[in-house]
């Protein structure tokens, strides 16, 4: 049974920083949105919470690619997470949640579950 979701408008194109991430607040908790203008698609969204430290910091990491996979490095302990799958590259047992993301006019929309705000605190 699929949980109910909605496409939430979280910010505008103006808020994005090329080649980097920003954090937004959603009903599903903090989410990091990355804008990599030299890729197609150029938008990625993953949980903002770093699973190794429990802190909300992933949007502040450095983006890049490792063997072609777009990644962000945690600014705290430097593990890499795939922006496509959320998989941690250093530890196969760890991954972060990913969110579908799209550009609607000048709005950035995320697909997030409804009524699950209690899971916001990681």
């Amino acid at each position: 049974m699929k949980a109910r979701t909605c496409w939430d408008a979280v910010c505008t194109v103006e808020d994005l920083v090329p080649e980097s991430g920003i954090a937004v607040w959603t009903d599903d908790g903090p989410v990091a949105v990355f804008y990599l203008p030299h890729r197609l698609p150029a938008l990625f969204a993953i949980s903002h919470t770093d699973p190794f430290s429990g802190t909300n910091v992933l949007a502040r990491g450095i983006t890049g690619d490792l063997k072609g996979e777009p990644v962000v490095a945690s600014p705290l302990y430097k593990q890499h997470f795939s922006l496509v799958t959320g998989q941690c590259l250093e530890d196969e047992n760890v991954s972060v949640k990913t969110y579908p993301v799209l550009l609607d006019g000048d709005k950035i929309r995320l697909e997030v579950p409804i009524d699950q705000s209690e899971s916001a605190v990681a």
Partner: peptide, 22 residues
């Protein structure tokens, strides 16, 4: 400067030292 922002470590980007709780 716009071109340099995404290159910096978080400490340089935000010109402060990140601590263990973010």
């Amino acid at each position: 400067a716009t071109d340099h922002v995404p290159l910096q470590d978080t400490n340089d980007t935000f010109m402060a030292n990140m601590q263990k709780n973010g």
